[in-house]
């Protein structure tokens, strides 16, 4: 790195810093702005007179008597029962992460340790499955799920999300497992373990960082999903993201966009916390697949 930056001219350095500042503004400002605006009334956040009103909260002051208001949050969480969706999202993401990791560690481990040709084919099939737009699969689910009477339940969405995430999960875990020398399982087996004991007692303890990283990405996939949850869940079982989407339909008309804005901010907070604590894992996870090129 020093080799690359050695003898950088001040001009180059200035250009780099300017560019980065611009990018940071692009990357972070929308979130700051929306967080700020969520405590205003609609007349300020979408001001007809001057967008500066959103900064000072002119209308907010006039309508509520204070420059900040929690009205949007009250409307979303209490009036429109956003808390139900939060609980649903918690259930769905929790189960998806645990089941995905259980299935994925077993499968990824087997794939990383097998030299047979079919292991390669399974990985290729997973790659093709990974490429498939989720919504194409949904059009396959919907009719059978209606017929079987399993449409609309959280458990259905969980199982589908687990399956849709499997290709990604086993690829990622496979590449993590491959970084663990085979000597380790082999000594465990010679020392008296069955394959499964070697996996549980020796490999998994070493794999924790990889499992956590993959878990984070499973979490993100489940948490951020819109297609599956929007199509497969009934109204009362909706998770946060489809709930917000349905806010958009109804609130725009009633002048309650601030409900949606508050809900959006609420749904963003967990993601912020996640990045804050697991930045290193996320970076290592993004590069894990790439290292093998």
């Amino acid at each position: 790195m020093s080799v690359l930056t050695a003898k950088t001219s001040p001009w180059m350095r200035g250009a780099a810093i300017g560019f980065i500042t611009l990018w940071l503004l692009m990357a972070a400002f929308p979130f700051v702005w929306t967080l700020w605006g969520s405590f205003k009334v609609q007349g300020d956040f979408f001001s007809r007179q001057d967008w500066l009103n959103a900064l000072y909260g002119v209308q907010t002051l006039a309508e509520t008597g204070s420059s900040f208001t929690g009205r949007g949050y009250y409307g979303a969480w209490v009036e429109r029962e956003f808390w139900r969706s939060v609980i649903n999202t918690g259930i769905v993401t929790g189960f998806v992460v645990v089941i995905s990791l259980t299935f994925g560690t077993l499968g990824g481990y087997a794939l990383s340790r097998s030299t047979a040709r079919y292991a390669f084919w399974i990985l290729i099939a997973a790659l093709i499955f990974r490429a498939m737009p989720h919504i194409t699969l949904l059009s396959g689910y919907l009719l059978p799920f209606f017929q079987l009477g399993v449409w609309g339940y959280l458990s259905t969405a969980i199982i589908v999300l687990v399956a849709i995430n499997q290709p990604f999960t086993i690829w990622m875990l496979n590449s993590f497992f491959q970084t663990i020398p085979k000597d380790l399982d082999e000594s465990a087996m010679v020392d008296g373990c069955s394959r499964f004991q070697a996996f549980r007692l020796v490999i998994i303890p070493v794999m924790w960082p990889g499992v956590i990283t993959t878990g984070l990405f499973s979490f993100l996939l489940a948490y951020n999903d819109f297609a599956v949850t929007a199509v497969l869940l009934s109204q009362e079982n909706q998770t946060m993201v489809p709930k917000i989407a349905s806010f958009m339909g109804s609130t725009q008309v009633q002048g309650n966009v601030m409900f949606a804005v508050s809900a959006v901010v609420s749904a963003t907070v967990p993601l912020f916390i996640l990045v804050l604590f697991f930045q290193r894992h996320i970076v290592s996870g993004l590069t894990a697949g790439a290292v093998k090129g």
């Binding site: 979130f31 989407a245 959006v264 993601l271 912020f272 996640l274």
Partner: peptide, 11 residues
């Protein structure tokens, strides 16, 4: 820099 990527696409 990670924020735009980590955010739910719809949101």
């Amino acid at each position: 820099s990670l924020l735009p990527m980590i955010i739910t696409p719809l949101i």
